[in-house]
Nucleic acid binder design. Structure first.
Length: 615
RNA sequence: GGCCCCGUAGCUCAGCUGGAUAGAGCAACUGACUUCUAAUCAGUAGGUCGCACGUUCGAAUCGUGCCGGGGUCACCA
């Protein structure tokens, strides 16, 4: 039982005794008392006023008296308006401290539930970029948090390895590569393939520009442009139609897609070769970010799924067929639209595939819940998907969650591939580590270590800066990524938190070398205000984890870890931790800061951020 | 236009299911290192919480309507 819940029980008992009223413990909110008032925890009595029909001050006063008389932990109280401030005794803090001494503090027991988390889910025509990093960090963190709180977690991604976009890279490679490979060019495979995707677009663009001078182009413009639409604006909009209707290279690419779908040997071989290049590139990026997956779905294996369910839904009358043969679902009764599920030629669409994939996953993993980490531009898609799965009667349908996160903008505005402003993941990772190396060498605090250990520290610091910068922002919100700020190591940053950890390791090393403190046989030590505040913060950790999980939002943990590190830094500044002259105090404080470092390490590890021992 | 998300200090962000005088960091200025790591700490300055109503003992938080920004409304994924 968490120590703090003794206090809520005391309040509950006092309300029962004084007023004969039964309060639900969940309705009792205890918050840390604001600094400007006396006390440790505050209970707000206003909500009771209506029920009990006494003045707030009177209720607070009577409850305070009663609690003080009966609680083994409350030594005094004071009342300010409707706020009952409770002062807790040393026994309380001692008990909290024992609670913290549990090796597994924060870690919940297995709850027997399985959660599946889908994140990253890239296309194989481009390397990963900053947006993927946010996605990956969110997915990974949610998975870690869930695991910490007792879930069995399956981390998964669905790789978009097929379709017209992939064929574009393949076509460009066929046309322009002269047989080059990532090896021959000394390139990471995903970047290599990505370059051909860009080459394709350039070739198409060139072709398109020439076509625009043709009579057919004039005819199209005359026939289809909107009022007051410029030629330039029209042709920008028309590009996709050009690709489908006129482009020779477009026609060839579409033929390639058809060949792929028919299983043409040569096409499939090229496709495999190029995708494997991409995967080896992705693997390096994932490894650099410290993430991995338990299961991977390839779209090439799932894109035909879902048709059976749609047909079943059709015969059950959940869906309907139009004259042209296409199948639809009508969701207008719940405020959504009609949505197509099978094209008139019987082929499936994205939604169909997602239905099938969900079912396949359930058959395979029997998960209790499923989280999709996907950007908020797909909010509507998931609303519809979940509604359809519900109508199909899928047993897990009400335990699906779309973790919808905001786009990442640059200080200059949106990232645009056409303008070359997309921030590449690998470049970014390298940059933050380089920056950490420079800053660290300037300080010189790790120069005594071997070179490879130093490099490992630079890596940890750089990645901490990057990851923390992204994960500290509420997932739902659109965020601005300033490359300059992302390598900052002062203030609300990953390295600031790492520094608290490192300082603690440093003190612990010093104390253990001195061996002057008997950690076991120490007397009871009376905590000062700063120490109480630290303990109070620490015992809040499990609740923070639960809240982050409930909201699927790791930023709560990021903020919590910062708050704890900040309190520690102040404590460290104001108080001597290891003092050979004062063994009882030293023993207590050493144990205290050790617990802090464990919580910081645990909290940050749920965010995918590692702690160095030196920095 | 319909629906969804966002709007808090110059900038980037916190602020839990409504609770005391709205908080951090960055940037600016001032101070603190012969002492456990100064990637630190302490201080100064900076706000009609987009606007207006409403609900409430109490609203940054809940509701409605505006304003501003973004997204989405394809037989694309």
């Amino acid at each position: 039982m968490a120590t703090l819940s003794y206090i809520t029980s005391d309040i509950q008992a006092a309300v029962r005794e004084k007023y004969g009223h039964e309060l639900d413990v969940n309705d009792i909110i205890l918050s840390p008392t604001k600094k400007e008032f006396e006390g440790d925890y505050t209970f707000v009595v206003f909500p009771l006023v209506k029920v009990l029909k006494f003045s707030p001050a009177q209720i607070a006063e009577e409850l305070g008296q009663c609690i003080k008389a009966n609680s083994r932990f409350v030594e005094d109280y004071n009342v300010v308006k409707g706020f009952l401030n409770l002062q807790l005794n040393q026994a309380f803090w001692q008990q909290c401290f024992e609670e913290l001494s549990d090796e597994k503090f924060g870690q919940a027991g297995r709850n027997g539930k399985k959660m599946m988390v889908e994140f990253s889910s890239p296309n194989t025509n481009k390397p990963l970029h900053l947006g993927h990093i946010r996605n990956i960090l969110l997915g990974w963190s949610v998975a870690q948090i869930a695991e910490t709180r007792g879930y069995e977690v399956v981390k998964t991604q669905v790789i978009n390895d097929r379709g017209i976009a992939v064929c574009k890279s393949m076509m460009a490679w066929k046309l322009f590569s002269g047989g080059a490979t990532p090896e021959s060019k000394g390139m990471k495979g995903d970047h290599f393939v990505g370059d051909y995707y860009v080459k394709f677009d350039k070739a198409l663009q060139k072709e398109y520009a020439e076509w625009q001078d043709s009579g057919e182009a004039d005819a199209q413009y005359d026939a289809r442009h909107k009022d007051e639409e410029s030629r330039e604006g029209f042709f920008k909009r028309f590009k996709n139609d050009y690709f489908n209707l006129y482009s020779p290279i477009g026609r060839e690419t579409k033929e390639m897609l058809l060949k792929w779908e028919e299983g043409d040997e040569e096409t499939v071989a090229l496709w495999k070769k190029m995708n494997n290049w991409v995967y080896s590139g992705f693997d390096k990026t994932y490894e650099a970010l410290g993430v991995h997956f338990d299961s991977i779905n390839y779209e090439s294996e799932t894109y035909l799924l879902g048709k059976e369910s749609v047909n079943k839904g059709l015969s059950d009358g959940i869906f309907y067929r139009q004259e042209d043969g296409s199948v639809w679902v009508d969701l207008e009764d719940v405020g959504m639209d009609k949505k197509i599920l099978l094209r008139s030629d019987g082929t499936s669409v994205y939604m169909t595939q997602d239905i099938g994939t969900a079912q396949m996953r359930y058959e395979e993993h029997a998960m209790d819940s499923m989280v999709y980490v996907v950007g908020n531009e797909q909010d509507y898609h998931f609303k519809v998907l979940f509604e359809i799965l519900k109508r199909l009667g899928e047993p897990y349908a009400d335990r699906l969650y779309h973790l919808s996160y905001g786009m990442v903008d640059l200080p200059s505005g949106k990232m645009k591939s056409r303008e070359g402003t997309v921030v590449d993941a690998d470049d970014l990772i390298k940059e933050v580590i380089d920056e950490a190396r420079i800053a660290s060498k300037e300080r010189g605090a790790v120069s005594h270590l071997e070179a490879y250990k130093q490099e490992d520290i630079f890596r940890k610091i750089g990645l901490a800066a990057l990851k923390y910068f992204i994960i500290k922002v509420n997932a739902r919100k659109r965020m601005v990524f300033d490359p300059k700020e992302s390598v900052d190591m002062q203030g609300t940053t990953g390295p600031y938190i790492q520094n608290a950890f490192v300082r603690i390791q440093s003190v612990l090393r010093k104390a253990s070398q001195a061996e002057a403190v008997d950690m076991e046989g120490s007397n009871i030590y009376i905590y000062n205000e700063a120490e109480k505040e630290l303990i109070s913060q620490m015992i809040g950790f499990p609740e923070v984890l639960d809240e982050a999980l409930r909201q699927y939002d790791p930023s709560h943990i990021a903020n919590y870890a910062y708050g704890l590190a900040k309190s520690f830094h102040r404590f460290y500044h104001d108080h001597v931790i290891y003092d050979p002259e004062n063994p009882d105090q030293s023993a207590s404080r050493l144990e205290l800061v050790k617990r802090i470092s464990l919580i910081i390490e645990k909290a940050m590890s749920t965010l995918g951020i590692e702690m160095p021992d030196y920095m």
